[in-house]
Structures are given as C-alpha cells and as structure tokens.
Design a protein around this nucleic acid. Structure first.
Lengths: 241, 241
DNA sequence: ACAAAAGTGTTGTAATTACACCCATGT
DNA sequence: ACATGGGTGTAATTACAACACTTTTGT
C-alpha cells in the first residue's frame, strides 16, 4: 500500500500467486532438478518446476514448505527465496506472479511413495535448460537458481545439504565439482574443509568405497557460513558438469 | 501455475501487489532512508517506505523504476530486488503482497521539485527502526535492506552509488564506515580501492576540503564486482553509525 | 606389483593487517 | 608551529595454489 494511492483505483490489479520450487540434487555426478510433467493446458507435455497456488492463510514460505513436503515427503530441507517473477505475460491464462524458492536436496529416491510426486522425476539441469523444454519462464528461474546455488557453495556450508547424513570429504568435493562444473584440487579441498570450524564433524567411522583407501565419514557441522569463503577460480564458468 | 492444480480452485486467492522501495543514502555521516508520511488509513501519521501498486502492463522492476522516478526524479539508480513480503495479515485492508527493492542513492536534496515526493523526507535508519515508527512490516523490510546493503559493499562496487558524480576516496570510506557502523583503516582502504581494477578512475582534479591535504577526485569505474572482496572484520556488528 | 582414492608436507605468492612515516593545506 | 586529513612504505601474518609424496585399500 505505502504511498502513491493517488494513482487511482483503476490502476490496481488482482493477481494470482504461486510458489515454484527449484529442488536441486547431485545424482550420477550430474546436477539434477526435480520436475513434473504437465498434462493440462497451457504447455501440455512440457516439464515444469513443482509448485502451486498460495492459499488464503499462507505466506509464501509456508506454501513452499507445504509443496516441498507434498513433492518430496521431506521436511527440514533448506528453502531459500530466490526472487519473484512477475512479467505480465508469463502465464497465458492471466496475471500470475510466482515466488521462487531454491531447495538443496540429498540424492533421494524420487518419487517418494505417498506424495503427490508420482509424476515427478529428476532430470539433469543441462537437459531441462534445453530450448523449449520447460513451461512458462521456468528456464529463467532454473538458471537463476543454479547461479544462486553456485554462489552459496562459495560462502555457506549448504554443500552438505546435497549429501546424505554421513558423507566423505570426497563426496562433498564432488558436489562442488558438479555444481561449479570445474575440478577442485582434492588435497587442498580436504584441508580447507577440515580447517573450517564447524563445517563437518568426523564420525570416527570409515567407508570402504571398493577401491582406494577408505575415507573418513563426516556429518554436517553447526556452521552455516564460511569464513574465509571457498572461491572458485573460474568465475566465468557456465554449464554444470 | 505449475503443478498441483488438483488442490482445487477454491483454494486459489487473488491478491493485490505493491512494490516498496528502500532508498538509502548517507547524509551527515548517517545512514538515512527516504520515507513518506501516511495520511490515510491504515497507519495514519506513521511513516512508510515509498511504493505503490503494480499496474496491469508492468512487471515488478518496471513498477519499481516508475515509483523511483516519481519519488526522486532520478533514473539510472540501481534497483535490486530484496524479497517478497507475503504474510497474510501484513495489510489490514486485505491480501496485499509487496515486492521490495533496494536503491542506493547519492546524497540528494529531497524532496525533488516536480515529483510526488512532496511528503517524502530522509530520516536516519536508526530512527526509522524505532519501535512502532514504520507502518506495515516496513521495519522488517528496512532491516533486510540494510543487511543486504552491508553485504553488497563487501563484494560489489555499489558504494560509489552513495557518492556524488565526483568523490574522494575519503568520502567512499565514510560510506563504508557509516553503513557498516565500523571504522576502516584509511591508509589501507586507500590502497585497496586504487588497486582494485575498475573500481574508481581518477579525474586528475583535487578537492580542497578546507582542512588537510587536498584529496584526489575520482569517478565510478566500470567494475561492478569486487575480487577480492572487501570483508568487514566484525561480522556481528549491528546498528549503523 | 599396481591402480586408485585418501590424506600430509612444503614452498612460493597474493592479500591483509597494523602501524611508522611523509605530504599539503588552513589557522 | 601545529592540527587535520591525504597518502606511501614496510614487516608480520594469513590464506591459497601447486605439487611432491605417503597411506591404505582392492585386484
């Protein structure tokens, strides 16, 4: 409401509001995104980000949490607001603005039984960003989400959210490599992670990967931000691995 | 729209959409924000962020640019989307969600003649954040905006947007000190700025401040991001100077 | 023995800090 | 002369990249 009410009643418009979720994970050394296949108009047979309408009593974050639960069966996953997409013609059925959220998920077996996500599937981001693959402006949203995720790896500990409950430093490094689309020196990475207070905590266990020396297992530590940050060298790098 | 349409038509709601602008500047060594005084219900006699309703053909950024022009008479100022505030009870008149933007402005003489901003005035952020001073959830928006501005000073060159067309390194340093609420070593700051490629370009002119050695004048350079970043040491610092 | 992955040591370089010191101006 | 703000020099510290080298497993 604020000011400028003078502009006139007739200028005010009513819009519908959706939340859209970009749920990213790393599977098969690839950055993947959870997508649903559309049956109805508009954009039948195209894929779309999971999402839905805001309900009367909800704020956007609450709606996003509900959708996430419906789609993945998981609570407690991070939800970061990306931004709001409000182009007047982004939805052919009328004025609909969408508040987009980013969720980082571990490598889950999706679809999860007992959720809405029967039609949901993981697809590589590279595929999803193919020309004309996604409905609405979801390609733009996905691009923004990936960019945000890359940035977040630099100065937060979200990378652990891509991993299972227990993980090795090597798996964590793979996350960085896949999301950044760039190789990271394993030796320096190792030290860096362990030196950063509260990033990971050792379980004392080891995992035998089948080949090579067994790796120590870790859990996510209490730290949420990284200081100093882990900066990628190639700032211009595009295209995840 | 996306998926989950199954949830049912009756759950969909129509909302009004506003954009709200957090326009920050540094005046009198203080971080200040442009506010309008409300006449109408709700919240008469409280202050509010400038803003207004989204119009039919506009996306949020376009509406924000229009409002900014109306309020300050200035184009070409930066506009960063902060986030969208969507609490169901944030506006007593009904369901209104607001997309908030952050603008960094030089020390302007406001109100500008020929704009809507007759009732607009600069007020210190510290005052604006006083208990019960701002209408709606604008205190929360302002807090988020200040936090964003602080972060942006660390890894972008936006600090120059606080300065007039020509400025001294000392003035630029004052921006950092005021926004961060912390002192910055003038000697190291000097070098850092000049070493960072494209941050500032010397005009060759000097300004006689009345006391002390005249300072070289600079203009904003082409660089938008800072690498390496300028990190504040006291991460926990609150309350701008 | 060898490949493979985990992990340690070490060296050179870049960046930051803290502070001594000089410069140019007004009073 | 001296206060004031602008600016340079420099040494100690920290962080990082690169890479040689060791460890522990499976085949």
């Amino acid at each position: 409401m604020s000011s400028s009410q003078a502009a006139g009643h007739r200028e005010r418009i009513l819009v519908q509001v959706t939340v859209d979720l970009v749920i990213l994970t790393v599977r098969d050394e690839t950055l993947q995104v959870l997508l649903v296949e559309r049956g109805n108009e508009p954009f039948p047979n195209k894929h779309a980000l999971p999402g839905g309408f805001l309900r009367p009593a909800e704020d956007a974050l609450t709606a996003a949490r509900r959708e996430l639960l419906e789609e993945t069966g998981l609570e407690r996953l991070s939800l970061d607001e990306l931004r709001t997409y409000s182009s007047p013609d982004r939805d052919p059925r009328g004025r609909v603005i969408s508040i987009a959220f980013l969720t980082i998920a571990p490598n889950l077996p999706i679809p999860v039984a007992g959720t809405d996500a029967v039609g949901a599937r993981w697809l590589p981001v590279k595929v999803a960003l193919g020309e004309g693959f996604l409905a609405f402006d979801h390609a733009e949203i996905l691009r923004d989400a990936v960019e945000r995720a890359r940035k977040m790896l630099e100065d937060t500990t979200v990378a652990v959210a891509f991993c299972a409950d227990e993980f090795t430093i090597g798996e964590l490094r793979t996350v960085y490599e896949v999301v950044w689309g760039d190789v990271v020196d394993a030796r320096n990475f190792n030290r860096k992670i362990k030196k950063t207070d509260g990033f990971v905590v050792a379980t004392g266990e080891f995992r035998n990967t089948g080949v090579g020396r067994p790796a120590a297992l870790y859990r996510a530590g209490p730290a949420k931000t990284l200081y100093p940050a882990i900066l990628r060298r190639t700032m211009g790098s595009d295209e995840p691995e």
